[in-house]
Design a protein around this nucleic acid. Structure first.
Lengths: 349, 349
DNA sequence: CTGAAAGCGCTTACAG
DNA sequence: CTGAAAGCGCTTACAG
């Protein structure tokens, strides 16, 4: 093991008997290097244990080899603080780090406010400081056109995870409306006729798309208006309990509930219990997330499993391709899965 | 909002009518700047929306404003892949990101192999490339003297989270032996006389310390040798099931089990069920972690709650202090907590 | 208290 | 196919 620190491109050049420039070509896989020279340089690099200094590369006008992954600040912090875990973040890191590593990139994870004004300030700050080669926006930031415009203005490639079909960019998503539709059809097939959808925040485009998928299936099935109740949640337990409580207390209470996330699905379980309704016999529940708690819940929740890690990985891949001068933009849809567990069954009555 | 991109120190200097040097003094809170000049510069910075370029700062010989947080590669990846969540990582990010942000630092999270040879290679790689101002090592890396030596050799401050009392460094930890002792005493007080401790990997110093705390309490209580059974686990479910299975099948089966992590505690719950033993009536279980799944498990697990986020935050704080030229080294013990839930009770027989 | 100079380790045009 | 020059945006000594 070579213990000597701070080996520079100059050291490699000297050891290989070439110019600094040629070494640069080799480490950047540039053209115009004779095979013999390339090998000599590579040998010197290996022998000295040379690793290019990222800051210098960036300063030289090259790339930063940094991908910035941005997530919703308040929700992430809340989840962490409550010790609730945060599977979405875990899967972001999983998909993002492994993909970045593959290409010699580093992933920097950041939390940014949902409020547009401070979000803009925070994002400007971090991109000015880090100068990432690409920025990855997740919900709800992926729906924020001001953030997207800021990035465009600074000529930083942007990947929107959870955003559909916006032009000239990298959009990675799953078919949210389709997933909601599939969950709805499944409940219909089980025989349910009074369904409720506990929506998350309308700030999230995905929430809107799911509500839409839910509605369309019911309309197509020729169900009357009151078949599909929309409850206005905000992704949180307490608010969901309130809304579900009212719904279950009504005369024509729903026999099945689709929740926009796990926390609200737990709220459904909780509220059903308070109303003395057994799950799934008297109330079916489907969640729109599939975090670890879901599988351990009692009973284990039927849920839509999102391809989070895969979406983030794809976004990073396309961002890196773009940084390399290839055209990475496009729309990439990844498959979800409806995982049937123990909270869904035909209605009792 | 100033949309102009790439504002440099030169622009600020010009706007404020001072030299680049003076601006540098202001942004680095250096001495020797007249109040009036400082204010003029600060106004220019605010007006232009100037944010220093990190790469340039590093290149100029300054700090990188990067803290590298290192975690066990294989275990982290396994947890993520299994969709099991990873509360330790979440809490690392929570404590690390918030603390780093406070000081204008960025946290970079990295996975490094436990195997010393590739671990060394990966760590050299990433520090040569990123040049962080400090590196934070978690178990089991915090116990790896080669890694610590590598960092010392490169003059990069190192904080060991989970390492106790190593000289001349930043060590942050909780009293692992004390926590194991407290859990053990609690079981003894409940009336248990045949206890088992499912140990994690001996690669982890903390595992060894806990086993020690467990043994000492039993010895002090004058319990005979066979009172405290040590089961050799490896933190994983399957292996723990095997070991616990054997223990529960024995004639003098333990009436209480302390597991070195949640997964093995779940294994205890699972195995108890297979043996027709009810928890806590016929078997008490205490876990040495307190991840979200634990609170949702049936029954909810009694557990030692580790101050993970706080330890990481403290480590970052001390690393940043050291980077600033202050002496951050020392030993910092943070408090744990025994959270009593539903898996512990007096023994039945 | 303030500024002019040198240099960090690269890459990007530009020559040859 | 290869090299010499310039420059990226800062900070660190060094002058004054």
């Amino acid at each position: 093991m070579t213990r000597q620190a701070n080996i520079t491109i100059e050291d490699v050049a000297e050891a290989a008997g070439v110019s600094r420039q040629t070494v640069s070509r080799v480490i950047n896989n540039g053209p115009n290097v004779k095979q013999a020279v390339r090998e000599k340089v590579e040998a010197a690099i290996a022998q000295l244990g040379y690793v290019p200094n990222l800051s210098a590369r960036r300063m030289g006008g090259g790339k930063s080899y940094l991908i910035l992954a941005v997530n919703d600040r308040q929700r992430t912090l809340d989840n962490w603080q409550a010790g609730r875990g945060n599977d979405w973040v875990d899967q972001m890191l999983y998909g993002g780090m492994t993909e970045c590593e593959k290409h010699g990139y580093h992933l920097v994870f950041r939390l940014i406010d949902t409020d547009t004004e401070s979000g803009i300030a925070q994002l400007s700050q971090v991109i000015a400081s880090l100068r990432p080669d690409g920025v990855l926006l997740t919900p709800p930031h992926c729906d924020n056109e001001e953030l997207v415009a800021l990035l465009a203005n600074r000529s930083i490639p942007c990947a929107r995870v959870g955003q559909h079909d916006s032009a000239d960019q990298i959009n990675v998503f799953m078919d949210e409306a389709g997933a909601a539709a599939e969950a709805t059809r499944y409940l219909l097939e089980l025989g349910h006729r009074r369904l409720a959808f506990v929506a998350g925040s309308p700030e999230y485009g995905n929430s809107r798309r799911r509500v839409q998928g839910f509605r369309e299936v019911l309309a197509k099935a020729g169900q009357p208006e009151e078949t599909g109740l929309i409850l206005d949640g905000d992704f949180r337990f307490d608010r969901a309990v309130e809304e579900i409580d009212k719904a279950l207390a009504s005369e024509n209470r729903p026999t099945a509930i689709i929740a926009d996330n796990d926390e609200m699905a737990f709220a459904a379980l909780h509220t059903a219990d308070r109303h003395g309704l057994s799950v799934p016999e008297q109330l079916s529940v489907i969640s729109f997330e599939d975090t670890p708690g879901v599988r351990f819940s009692v009973p284990p929740l039927t849920a839509i499993k999102q391809p989070t890690a895969q979406m983030i990985a794809r976004a990073c891949e396309k961002l890196i391709a773009t940084a390399r001068g290839e055209n990475g933009s496009g729309n990439f849809e990844l498959p979800y899965e409806l995982v049937k567990r123990a909270t869904t069954a035909p209605p009792d009555d």
